[in-house]
Design a binder for these strands. Structure first.
Lengths: 231, 231
DNA sequence: GGAATAGTGTCTCTAAGACAGTATCTA
DNA sequence: TAGATACTGTCTTAGAGACACTATTCC
């Protein structure tokens, strides 16, 4: 088994990836947790994660994608690096690095059948192992921050969406109301949505809303405005 | 020598820290590079970096601080995590993770005596080893982006500064002119500078400029405004 | 006094928010 | 037709940029 080639042969480092998988349930952000099946912290709910498999994973992004697929069945979410967390104290097994990614998925993409899969509201997290509490908090802060000036929250939605429902999603993520006119101006400016001609979401006792979908060019890309939603 | 405790005994991972040390020389950002003294890429200019020393370094931040001190003599700059770069291909020795930090220092803090220390303008980088080119580019992008709405560029200055000179620093970092009135309004809003009573920077054939310094509370903190410099 | 840059008052212009109007559905 | 929400036109307001004016130095 190869050993890393360090200049002074230092004890090597435990390298893992963890994924903060966020979704919207009701009006609040939730994070997906899994019960740990091994020590340390066996039985505690934790972020989906695992060791980097240096033979299989060409990059950490590949590793995060693999972990997500293996542990939650999710295949191609919006997945982006959050940061890395490292140090001697965070894992009882030794000096460790966790390369952390965050992902956004619509609730419907989760098969809650999966063994041991939990959904915890980010505002009220259970006791988490390692530094997972801090990691979730920072992921949520990142998502809130990026949502101010980008289309990030659309990845919490399925492909067909109306503007009133999308606004509610933004408001849930940001935790505050948004001006309707400004919101619509911004969405228009970002230009990532296109109306589905003739398709309206009716069924309620009022004017039905136009149904939109992401333009093809934006299916996996973020759209950004310079001045934000100013909320 | 311990070996990491991986679930399937995967070959372990090379873990290093690298620092993108930026400074302002003339009117442009420069990055500090060091000639590599060992393989791979011996002789090429590269980012200051080194292996994480799991016995000495409690955290990656500690490792970055140590690397900076050992390789450049810099002691307490503004130092923040940029991102991590990892994968099978980036280092010929094997699957590697580099935990990358960026730091800003005034040019005067650099002792350019240091053996093999080079200053390269970020707009015209020499050939760099590994993925250091990409890393520098992303660090510069981060610094530009944060400079839009924060006091980050003050860490490129010494402790006494005038507003006209600070504006020139911002303009050098951002690469575009800034409106003088708006700039002063923003600096005032951030409230991190205090005039040094009675101290003026004269010596030229015009009205002298008021000298300012960072308020104590901001000596190591960033100041942020919500709406940016809008430049 | 002239030249030069520091510093400030104020107008303009852009973009966000407020408000109220019209549109279109169900019951 | 009443009630509800979708959508839009337009006024108000806040903040960034433009411009010009005053201030203060050296020569």
């Amino acid at each position: 088994m190869p050993k890393p080639n360090t200049d002074a042969d230092y004890p090597s480092v435990i390298c893992t990836v963890d994924v903060v998988l966020l979704t919207l349930k009701g009006q609040s952000l939730h994070v997906v947790l899994l019960r740990r099946k091994s020590e340390p912290f066996m039985g505690l709910p934790a972020l989906p994660g695992g060791f980097v498999h240096t033979q299989e994973d060409a990059t950490a992004w590949d590793a995060a994608t693999r972990v997500l697929r293996e542990k939650t069945g999710i295949v191609s979410p919006y997945l982006e690096q959050l940061a890395s967390y490292s140090g001697a104290e965070r894992d009882p097994r030794g000096w460790s690095v966790s390369l952390v990614y965050y992902a956004l998925v619509p609730l419907e993409a989760l098969s809650l059948q999966t063994e041991g899969l939990l959904l915890a509201p980010v505002a009220k997290l259970p006791k988490l192992p390692f530094d997972h509490r801090r990691i979730v908090d920072e992921a949520v802060a990142r998502v809130r921050s990026k949502s101010q000036y980008s289309s990030l929250p659309v990845y919490l939605c399925q492909d067909r969406i109306t503007l009133p429902r999308l606004q509610a999603v933004y408001e849930a993520v940001l935790g505050e109301p948004i001006n309707k006119v400004s919101f619509r101006r911004k969405m228009d400016e970002m230009g990532m949505l296109e109306p589905v001609e003739g398709e309206l979401e009716g069924g309620a006792a009022h004017r039905p809303a136009q149904v939109y979908r992401l333009k093809k060019a934006y299916r996996k890309e973020l759209s950004v405005v310079t001045r934000g939603l100013n909320s």
